[in-house]
Structures are given as C-alpha cells and as structure tokens.
C-alpha cells in the first residue's frame, strides 16, 4: 500500500484524517528573547518564530484550523479563499498533503516568489487587480463562488471564526507556558486580525495581559497583509474591544528594524515581522519593567525584491 510521505497514512485516507495527522507540525514554535533590542534591565522582549512550522508562517495555524473545519463538508468542491500570500502558502501546503483541490484569489502585485511557490504546490490562482489590494481578491472570490457554488467552498479567512480560535487554542497557551506566565504585554499587527484577536483573548483566559494592536501608519504601505483600519475593509472577525491600545508603525520604521534585527539578533525578518518588533520595542521603551511578547509572522526568504531595494 502506498503511504503519504508526510503523514505515513495510506493515500486512501480522507483529507480530514490527513489534516489531523499534520496537526503536530503546526504551531509549537520557539519563543526567543531579543536581548539586543531591550531598552533597559527589567524589560524583556520575546518573539515567536512563526516561520518554523509546516506552512512557513504564522498563517499555518489559521489555515490548518480553517481547512480542518471545512474538510468533512467539501463534497468534492475546491477550497477557495482570498489571500495576499502567506495564508495561501499555508493552505497550499496542507491541501497538497491532504489531497484537497485549492483555488486562491490574490492581487497580481503579490511577489513573484509567492506566486511561484503557490503554483509549485498545485494551487489554482486567480490574479486580481493590483489597484484593489486584498479587498479586490475577496470580491473576486465571492463572485467565483456565487457563479459556481457547486465547485467552490469559500472559507473566507477574514470572516471565519476558526481563524482567531486557532490562536486561542495554540498561540496563547504556548506563549503563556513559554514565559511561565510572566508575559505583561502582547503586541501584534492587524491583518485578518486573527492572530491579534485570538491570542489576546486566549492570553486573558490565563491572566492579566495588556494587548496592543499595530496597524500601518499609512493607507499604502509595505507591510504585507496588514490593514490600515481607517481605509481598509475591516475584517468581520475583528473585535476592537480586545485592544487596550492601537499603535501605528511606518513602513520606513519596519525596514529600519529589518536591518537592525539582522545585524543585532541574526534574525532575517519580513517587513511585517520587523514591524511587530518595532512595535514591541516602542511598547517596551515606555515600561520600567515587563515582559513584552510579539509574533514574527515570517522571515525574509520570500522578500527578495525588498531586500534588493534596501541593499
């Protein structure tokens, strides 16, 4: 009998079963202390290395949860969603391993690395107008499923509770355990808002934690996946009562932190991961004591264009 190379399951196992066997490869990421960036003794900054899981980014958690929820109900339909990249790569990874057909809508101006990775993983891509950002991709996904509901199961990461619940169930308890309950502040950017909303809610079931949401400073920005709340379509899963404060990070500050983190910590960060670190450092600078935690969505490996421009 032929076995699946990743799950050791027979190829005849259902997609839901194969997804279940991938679960140990999702989450459980390292938490590292960024001592070089700490402003003073008594204030710690820690970060989750979220690219160190199957699927390659923090989006693996939500993607796996969303697919697990829909898999028993697919009935031969393709999974469909809109993405600016990382969720798409996580979906494509799990769908390839679980035998689920996948269609993704994404803006045409996504980086060539991402499009190439998705094609290699077998995803069907619908490229949408570069002028309309991920909102245009969401509209395209809605149009596809409306035109052919028998072909697509639109899982809609922006409005799917499985997105934020994944972080309640995994990211939050991991952070609580890895800091031995010492975390005082959680800082994260808003994209689909699943990471911030779910992790914040989860942490508060364990204890008192101040949660600071980050958004890009400007409507146009270089922080992939992030939403500028004043101008973007706010995801349905966002709950603004969760944030104790909302701070802004400029793309320029994120780029500067990419360079500083590479030289001082050895971490090659994506722009959005660097923006999270910049936000965490800003929060830490206001403290006399505390333990600040953030998440590093992905590393710089898919940002050749950005690294080239900044070199």
């Amino acid at each position: 009998m032929t076995s699946h190379p990743m799950t050791s399951l027979p190829m005849t196992a259902s997609p839901a079963t194969r997804l279940q066997h991938l679960r140990p490869h999702v989450g459980s990421t390292p938490l590292v202390r960024l001592r070089a960036l700490e402003p003073r003794p008594g204030v710690e900054i820690h970060a989750k290395l979220e690219w160190q899981q199957l699927g390659g980014s923090v989006k693996a958690r939500a993607a796996h949860a969303i697919l697990t929820k829909v898999a028993p109900h697919l009935g031969g339909r393709r999974v469909l969603d809109a993405t600016s990249g990382n969720t798409g790569i996580a979906y494509a990874t799990f769908c390839a391993a679980a035998g689920i057909p996948l269609t993704l809508c994404m803006p045409e101006n996504a980086s060539p690395e991402r499009k190439r990775i998705l094609q290699w993983l077998g995803a069907e891509l619908h490229l949408t107008s570069p002028f309309e950002a991920t909102e245009g991709a969401q509209d395209a996904a809605r149009q596809l499923v409306a035109a052919d509901p028998g072909r697509y199961a639109y899982v809609d990461q922006y409005n799917n509770d499985a997105n934020w619940r994944a972080h309640v169930e995994s990211t939050a308890p991991e952070i609580w355990a890895q800091t031995a309950g010492r975390i005082t502040h959680f800082v994260a950017g808003l994209g689909t808002t699943g990471t911030f909303t779910g992790t914040s809610r989860g942490l508060r079931t364990h204890g008192q934690v101040t949660c600071v949401a980050l958004q890009p400073e400007t409507a146009l920005h270089g922080l992939e996946g992030w939403k500028h709340l004043e101008t973007a379509r706010v995801p349905g899963i966002y709950d603004d009562s969760v944030a104790d404060a909302v701070a802004s990070v400029s793309t320029e500050a994120a780029y500067a932190m990419m360079q500083r983190a590479a030289r001082e910590t050895g971490l090659l960060l994506s722009p959005s991961a660097a923006a999270n670190v910049a936000g965490a450092v800003a929060v830490a600078e206001e403290l006399e004591s505390g333990v600040v935690v953030t998440v590093l969505a992905d590393d710089a490996s898919k940002y050749h264009d950005t690294l080239t421009r900044l070199s």
Binding site: P107, E108, P130, F131, H304
Partner: peptide
C-alpha cells in the same frame, strides 16, 4: 500613470 500598493514583498509585475 498608476500608483500600485506594494504588497507581499513588493512588485515586479505590471498590471
């Protein structure tokens, strides 16, 4: 003239 948002690592594709 087109202004294009830089998402997901930048732009190398023109519409």
């Amino acid at each position: 003239i087109s202004i294009i948002p830089a998402i997901a690592g930048g732009i190398s594709h023109r519409p």
